[in-house]
């Protein structure tokens, strides 16, 4: 009889080059979802400074915003959030059984729209920092 054994790259994420649109949409949706959950937790750290005093909170925010890396992270956060929203809408339609034949196109559309919105937001986010 057969035994199970490690078939190596036959069945793992090392085959990402062969993924199709729907699979990528799923991977990105999971990833962005977890990033957003992580971002929720950073609120605890930042907001809790308000329990010390109003000034401490303001200072924390100003201090953070003066860091260039934070500005870039904000652009990244927007990208993650926008994609998650748009793909979420796509999934809503999938759940309603609308336009399932175009699921790959709607994924590409979410990507393109995310890209456009993110690029357009760059001047706002980086204003005064560079």
């Amino acid at each position: 009889m057969s035994q199970s054994y490690d078939r190596g790259l036959v069945e793992d994420f090392g085959r990402w080059r062969e993924f199709s649109a729907g699979m990528w949409a799923w991977v990105f949706h999971k990833f962005t979802g977890w990033v957003l959950v992580g971002y929720l937790f950073t609120h605890i750290a930042v907001l809790s400074t308000a329990t010390i005093s109003a000034e401490a909170y303001t200072q924390t925010i100003v201090g953070l915003e003066s860091l260039l890396v934070i500005r870039f992270l904000e652009v990244g956060l927007l990208a993650v959030a926008v994609f998650h929203i748009l793909n979420g809408l796509r999934l809503l339609f999938v759940d309603l059984g609308v336009g399932l034949e175009a699921q790959d196109k709607s994924f590409y559309a979410s990507l393109a729209l995310t890209g456009a919105i993110v690029v357009a937001s760059v001047p706002t986010f980086l204003a005064g920092a560079v």
Partner: peptide, 16 residues
């Protein structure tokens, strides 16, 4: 809804 099954089905069944 990864659509992988729908993509590979040789009988073109809209599985998803």
């Amino acid at each position: 809804t990864q659509f992988s099954c729908t993509e590979v089905c040789p009988k073109d069944i809209p599985l998803t």
